[in-house]
Computed example of a mutant assay.
Amino acid sequence: MKNQLRFNPFTDRLSRDIRNELSSALALSLKEGSEKPVMTVAQQFLATEPAEIYVAYINERLHRYRKAIESISGKIDDPFLRSFMLWDLELFFEMHEVLEHDWYHATGETKLLLQALIRAAGVYIKLECDLQPQASKIAAKALPVLEAQHDTLAAYFPPERLIGALKSKSLTPPKLLTGY
């Protein structure tokens, strides 16, 4: 049986490099309000003529990144709202990358909630690569804070969507802002 190549940043260096560099470029693109940073990174990887799985990942990410840049750049300063918009685009690693910058400068309950949201995104990052035991451990760390911050989350979306999905170990990430 032929060994099938799979995009997996946990086991494949090129997958990890593409994911990490594109994600960092998205953070910059959101800040600048320009697609240029993500397009530059994408073109650098595409110029190496990688296997189709990498091309497909890059193109799929660019599609979602355009939506994120259009919806967020210059319009949304609230780090929570930004992160929930990225979540609904299923840009979990990118959400982690963007929130991490806000987390560094936060304090108190805000810092704890940002960390819990980073962990919640981490659950779905792990699940994308079939790492259920690791996802469960991360969810267990995120849930107490998310439950304690129920009222803060309720200002954006019904918190049960996220809390329930993490508790039930749902493989399908809930839409937070855009419905069920």
Rank of each mutant, 00 (worst) to 15 (best):
M1P: 09
Q115D: 07
L22E: 00
Y54E: 04
E60T: 08
K2R: 15
S168N: 05
K169T: 05
R6C: 10
L89E: 02
Y65F: 11
L166S: 05
A135W: 11
V98Q: 02
L143S: 06
N20Y: 03
G33M: 14
E147R: 12
P173L: 10
K2S: 12
T110L: 14
T107G: 02
Q149V: 00
A42L: 10
H96D: 03
D17N: 10
Y180H: 12
G179H: 05
D130E: 09
V145H: 02
T107S: 07
Q132L: 15
K31I: 13
S136L: 10
K175Q: 10
W87N: 01
A148G: 04
V38C: 08
L22I: 04
H105E: 01
N59L: 12
F80G: 00
T172G: 02
M39E: 15
H101P: 03
A121G: 08
H101R: 13
R19S: 07
R161G: 07
E32C: 05
A25N: 05
H150S: 12
V98Y: 01
L114Y: 15
A51G: 08
I72L: 15
K75C: 06
F92T: 07
A148W: 01
D102T: 08
G122A: 12
M95G: 00
L131K: 09
E60S: 09
A139G: 05
L89V: 06
V145E: 11
L5E: 08
K175R: 15
A27N: 05
L22T: 01
A139C: 09
E70T: 10
A47I: 08
D78F: 03
Y180M: 07
A140I: 00
I138H: 00
G164N: 09
K2V: 13
K169C: 08
A68F: 01
A142N: 07
P173Y: 06
A135G: 09
R16H: 12
G74D: 13
D77F: 03
S29I: 12
M1G: 15
L89T: 04
E21H: 13
A148T: 00
A27I: 01
D102V: 04
M39T: 13
P144S: 01
E35A: 13
D12N: 15
A27E: 01
D102F: 13
A106P: 02
E147S: 08
L162P: 14
F45W: 10
L176V: 06
A51W: 05
S29V: 07
P50W: 02
F92W: 12
P9Q: 14
I72N: 10
H63Y: 06
D88H: 14
A154S: 09
S83M: 01
K167V: 04
P50Q: 04
P50I: 03
R16G: 06
P159E: 11
H150D: 12
A116K: 01
E97P: 00
A135Q: 10
R66V: 01
S23H: 04
S29H: 03
L166M: 07
F45H: 12
